[in-house]
C-alpha cells in the first residue's frame, strides 16, 4: 500500500484479509469481560465452557475482514453528514464532531462467517445452552478484534502519509441509523468479506460488523465518547 494519499480509486485502496483464529489470540479473560464478569472471576463451569469453546474456536474457519479507503477527493465531511460521491451518510452530529479534522475515510467490515453461529445453534439445540452462548460470545469478540486488527493495518498503511485515525463509528450507534448499512456496503464490492445486508440493515452472517474511521493529518482519536451522546438508554453506554 504505497500510493500517495491524493490518489484516486486504485486497487491498493481496497484490502481484504483472512485472519486465522490463532492470530486473534482470544483469552478466557477477554471472553469473561465480554460476558460481564469484569474484575470478578467467572464461576468454574463458565470458565470450563470458555476453555472448551476456545478450543472449538481454534479449529474454526479463518475470519474475513477488510477495508476500503476513500481519499480526500472522494469524501466531503459536514457537521452531520459525510458525502461520498452519490452516497450520503447521515451520521448525525455526534459522529460529525468525532470526524472533525479528517480528510479521508476508511470503510471497515469483518465477519466470523456462518461457521461459529451454526455450531452455536447446534449446541443450543442439543441442550448445551451455556456452551452455545459462550461460542456466540467468542464470535462477537473475534469480530471486534478483527476490526481492531483492521485499524492496526490502516494505521500501518497510512502512517507514512502522516495520517492518523479517528475513533470507529458503526451504523446503528451514536445516532447513525442502522438502515444506512446498505449504503455503507454499496461502497464495497458485492459480498465483501462474505457479508450481505438485508433491507433492515441486518448483516448476514449475524456475527459481522462494519465501521467507518476518519483519516487525515488532523484526525483525532478521543479516549471516551459516551459523554458526547444523549442516548441514556443505549445498551453499550458506559459513563465510567
Amino acid at each position: 500500500m504505497t500510493a500517495h494519499p491524493d490518489m484516486h480509486e486504485t486497487e491498493s485502496s481496497v484490502r481484504e484479509f483472512s485472519v486465522s483464529p490463532e492470530r486473534l489470540r482470544l483469552t478466557p479473560e477477554a471472553i469473561e469481560r465480554r460476558i460481564g464478569y469484569g474484575d470478578e472471576s467467572a464461576p468454574d463451569n463458565v470458565r470450563a465452557a470458555i476453555e472448551e469453546m476456545l478450543a472449538v474456536f481454534d479449529s474454526a474457519d479463518p475470519f474475513r475482514c477488510g477495508f476500503r479507503i476513500l481519499d480526500p477527493g472522494q469524501v466531503a465531511f459536514h457537521p452531520d453528514r459525510i458525502v461520498c460521491g452519490k452516497v450520503i451518510f447521515r451520521t448525525g452530529s455526534i459522529i460529525g464532531r468525532g470526524l472533525k479534522g479528517c480528510s479521508a475515510l476508511a470503510l471497515l467490515a469483518a465477519s466470523a462467517g456462518p461457521d461459529l453461529s451454526e455450531r452455536g445453534r447446534v449446541l443450543i439445540s442439543e441442550g448445551r445452552e451455556l456452551a452455545g452462548y459462550v461460542l456466540d460470545t467468542i464470535a462477537s469478540e473475534c469480530v471486534e478484534q478483527c476490526l481492531e486488527h483492521l485499524e492496526s493495518e490502516l494505521a500501518a498503511a497510512t502512517a507514512s502519509w502522516g495520517w492518523r485515525l479517528s475513533n470507529r463509528y458503526s451504523p446503528g450507534y451514536c445516532g447513525w441509523d442502522v438502515v444506512e448499512q446498505a449504503k455503507f456496503f454499496s461502497l464495497l464490492h458485492e459480498n465483501f468479506c462474505g457479508i450481505t445486508v438485508r433491507s433492515s440493515g441486518l448483516m448476514v452472517p449475524l456475527k459481522s460488523a462494519s465501521a467507518l474511521v476518519g483519516l487525515g493529518e488532523n484526525a483525532e482519536r478521543k479516549d471516551y465518547e459516551c459523554s458526547l451522546c444523549d442516548r441514556e438508554d443505549c445498551i453499550i453506554r458506559n459513563d465510567g
Binding site: I35, G36, Y37, A42, P43, N45, V46, A49, G127, E129, L130, Y133, V134
Partner: peptide
C-alpha cells in the same frame, strides 16, 4: 442487580 450474568441464568434455567 448485575451480580450474576447470562451463564448463571442459563444454568438456573437448565
Amino acid at each position: 442487580a448485575k451480580r450474576i450474568f447470562v451463564p448463571e441464568v442459563l444454568m438456573a434455567a437448565k
